[in-house]
Design a protein around this nucleic acid. Structure first.
Lengths: 230, 230
DNA sequence: ACCTGAACACCGTTCAAGT
DNA sequence: ACCTGAACACCGTTCAAGT
């Protein structure tokens, strides 16, 4: 039973919800303004009372995605906060953040791709999209700083380290999502980037993620050239 | 002076060339079958004698991109090979490979994005696309193995390490390309992933890349849990 | 204020028909 | 074999007009 009119004033919300569902089910390319109008029981022109164009509507969906990601990351932080103060937990918190991050990407591939789709995310971005994305980033930044204070990470520009951590796990996420990294069953190994067709891996994905997290943390904690002054 | 007929038999090559130029100039979304036909001086239907669909044509452009990437990586390997045998050069070769990789992405953003665009690269892929992509990957695999033999990298599944290295630098590349990581001038630092609008960074990009490379190599070389058996 | 109907300028793709 | 003309089934977006 479809409500046959949206004069009640929340066409905007209904469109975003319909778009989010389409993004989940069929990916960004499955979203058309016409199908959204149809789903909302409204004319093709109606959405343009609420969004300047398709890009703006998709940006709203991406923003909801960033809020969801931020929520997941905040749960991790809440969990780890008590231990972190005592020291020695900084690495564990960062590992949990990375797990949560990749987990989000694998759980919501359509949203994740949209959130990092150049057409949507490339400047100019709306301030609200901007802010929701930055908020998620700030969490890793704070976790990085905390781990630096307990000597668990190398010193240096925390924002740089956070960017590097995020870009590493972003690379992992998109390659996993696109099936461009295959994980075989011969031990802990990732295998043959861009290799053969469908196989049944899936459980080894997790151990591959764990190895990546370990290596990223090791890199971020190595003394290296940054430690010359200590 | 446009040649007004392509009966001479290489419409296929002309279409791929025109598409590659459009990809460079305007990105993948700038490519339309109709504009390609127009550029080649041929009817809209003609391309379909040579390609099943648009995806297949773009895959040919992506394949050329992988060949170019592979060429760049092979130049690095040729340069480092002599020293690598003597040991101690393995890390330097890997660093050069990563530099060349990111350099390619920044030089040819349109091609790079196309090469990792899910619609093109997601299975089923043509065997030739498959092979050209794998070839580029094999290079890092061999370099990883060489560095393991000289004790410059941790032991363990070389393919996994190669995948992790590639995914880290892939993440760096796409975030740089999309302007989602900003680099400010306060030292060596990357800054504020997904932060503000246009600034004039550009020179600091290089030092940010260098820091990433250093951290990735440190992570790949740390003894960690993998070294329990040594 | 919010929505509709109808149009405009695009797409990718197909298919009979031409040479 | 290779290409054309014309059509089909889509798009995003606009704009006068309705309520």
């Amino acid at each position: 039973m479809v409500t046959d009119t949206y004069h009640h004033g929340n066409l905007r919300a209904a469109l975003v919800a319909a778009a989010a569902e389409l993004v989940s089910d069929a990916g960004v390319e499955g979203v058309t303004m016409r199908s959204l109008s149809r789903a909302a029981g409204v004319s093709r022109a109606a959405p343009y009372r609420h969004f300047a164009d398709k890009r703006e509507l998709l940006a709203a969906v991406a923003e909801a995605g960033f809020l969801d990601l931020d929520r997941r990351l905040s749960e991790v932080e809440g969990r780890g906060a008590a231990g972190a103060v005592e020291g020695g937990e900084g690495r564990a918190v960062l590992a949990d953040l990375m797990r949560a991050y990749v987990g989000f990407a694998l759980d919501r591939p359509g949203h994740y791709r949209l959130m990092f789709s150049p057409d949507i995310v490339r400047p100019p971005r709306s301030v609200s999209l901007q802010e929701s994305a930055s908020r998620a980033f700030e969490r890793s930044l704070e976790a990085i700083r905390a781990a630096q204070e307990t000597q668990e990470l190398r010193s240096g520009d925390a924002a740089a380290l956070a960017s590097i951590m995020w870009s590493a796990v972003h690379g992992l996420a998109v390659l996993l999502l696109d099936g461009q990294v295959r994980v075989t069953s011969d031990g802990s190994g990732g295998h043959a980037l861009l290799a053969g067709d469908e196989t049944d891996e899936a459980q080894n994905v997790e151990s591959f993620i764990e190895l990546t997290i370990e290596i990223v943390l090791d890199g971020l904690s190595s003394a290296a050239s940054e430690a010359r002054r200590s």
